[in-house]
Amino acid sequence: MGLLRKIRATGRVAEPAPPRPEGGVLEKARELGGSAQVRCVDAGSCNGCEIEIAAAFNPLHDAERYGARIVASPRHADVALVTGPVTRNMAEPLRRTVAAMAEPRLVVAVGDCAIDCGEFAGGHGVEGAVADVVPVDLTVPGCPPEPEAIVAALRRVTGR
């Protein structure tokens, strides 16, 4: 009963929903019908973006209320949330992960490193940005991006 009491005592902690992000829903994501299953791929990140993604799905930002949900396998996913510059070791697994997802599928590059390799550009272990490896549909700039930005990007996929 302790849990139930705690839930009642805590109440709702999620922040009020911000207005819909600009640009509206992506054309390619319309078919998803407001529900996006998300698979995160760390292609070589410093884990800063991972912390922010985790924050985006915490009770405060609660990305799930907009229809996005983290899943454990690309077979279940509609969206690949890719972070970090793509290292040589992760380039092929990233390609396979995206190939393993059912159509329609979207790739969201999260963080500056994912967009243009950021600090790590030119590193000997770096293959390139995410867009060099797989086609990218949406980018979330920032180093690391704030959870609000990640939520906003996911809302452009779910359209809610």
Partner: peptide, 12 residues
Amino acid sequence: RVHARLWDCGGG
């Protein structure tokens, strides 16, 4: 139906 490659966790 589309034939996809076996999901191997990306590791080969």
